[in-house]
Design a protein around this nucleic acid. Structure first.
Length: 322
DNA sequence: TCCATTTGACCTAG
DNA sequence: CTAGGTCAAATGGA
């Protein structure tokens, strides 16, 4: 019995380290792509090189970072490690969902017994939006639960992305009516959209990146580093908020870092760089965190020039390149 | 028949 | 132990 367990564990460790090294390489590849796109973007912005539009490049950069973060996110916790199928299967970018469920299926015949098959989210980053009415944010949601919440007058509804199963999209949201007068709808978003609609919103993000509406309140607060990549990868979703009328919403980003992002009038590039790099800082592991934290501190200074930022960006990759 | 919602049970974090 | 998040069978509508 014990011998069997040991053998299983050693197999898992092996599989896991292989997966880590594979994921890491993929993540590095994605980051290198992102750097390449960023350099192209710089020549577009600085040198007037119009071979490829800034918007296209920005979309590519965003996608590259999203993919990177998803890759890194797919192997973030030890619990996940213990549940990786022995086949060493790699999950598609963005898929960090019910891996445990699959392992349960293979391990136990009973589908009724779900013990250990479910890992509750703990203090993950979230986006909170408060609106006076229930509005459609453009994504296809499917309700999967409803709970009575302590000290809350109204029940809380739980939604997941409709494409959870066909595309592995792990985005979820919770909607709860507040007790205020008039009642408001508080929507809390978790996770990232990896379904096709993400691409759509990413494009929206690029297209709207010049028009920052000062009526949208952005604030950063948080409690946990572990999931920040998943959270920030969903920024295309966040940006999409601008599609809707702006007189009725409050958007709150929860993030663990205190990088003074409460300014509404920062440029779109400042906004993107500080967020994405901050995300990297918190998730790339201790061996790279020191490098990245330096970048974070410099990027939060909105007075940096484009060249300064690119130099910082290059510095990051010193630690990555093989 | 398919798909979304409802709802009670299950499960975990605190 | 409790509150809250998720699952999945049951149910209902198109």
């Amino acid at each position: 019995m014990e011998r069997h367990t040991d053998a299983t564990m050693s197999t898992m460790e092996c599989t896991w380290s292989e997966k880590i090294s594979g994921d890491r390489k993929r993540a590095i590849d994605e980051l290198l792509r992102g750097r390449s796109f960023t350099k192209q973007l710089r020549s577009v912005l600085v040198g007037g090189d119009q071979q490829e539009s800034a918007q296209d490049l920005l979309a590519k950069i965003l996608r590259s970072f999203n993919d990177t973060l998803s890759i890194l996110n797919s192997g973030e916790s030890n619990e996940v490690v213990s549940q990786i199928p022995a086949s060493g299967q790699l999950y598609s970018p963005g898929w960090h969902g019910r891996r445990s469920e699959e392992s349960c299926e293979s391990g136990k015949s009973s589908t009724k017994d779900r013990r250990g098959c479910y890992k509750r989210r703990k203090n993950s980053q979230s986006l909170i939006r408060i609106t006076p009415n229930f509005h459609d944010d453009g994504y296809a949601w499917r309700k999967y639960g409803q709970k009575v919440i302590l000290n809350a007058k109204h029940q809380r509804s739980y939604y997941r992305c409709t494409h959870k199963h066909d595309q592995g999209c792990m985005a979820t949201k919770q909607v709860q009516m507040t007790e205020e007068e008039p009642p408001m709808y508080k929507t809390t978003y978790h996770g990232q959209h990896t379904c096709k609609s993400m691409l759509k919103s990413s494009q929206i993000m690029v297209e709207n990146s010049t028009a920052r509406d000062s009526s949208i309140l952005l604030s950063f607060e948080s409690n946990n580093q572990d999931d920040s990549n998943a959270f920030f990868s969903s920024f295309p979703l966040i940006k999409q908020e601008e599609e809707i009328p702006n007189d009725d919403q409050e958007v709150t980003y929860n993030n663990h870092t205190n990088n003074n992002n409460k300014n509404n009038n920062s440029s779109s590039s400042d906004y993107l760089l500080s967020l994405e790099l901050t995300t990297s800082e918190s998730n790339l592991g201790s061996d790279h965190g020191d490098v990245l934290s330096g970048v974070n501190s410099s990027c939060t200074d909105s007075t940096h020039s484009l060249d300064d930022m690119m130099m910082d960006f290059d510095d990051v990759f010193i630690g990555f390149e093989c």
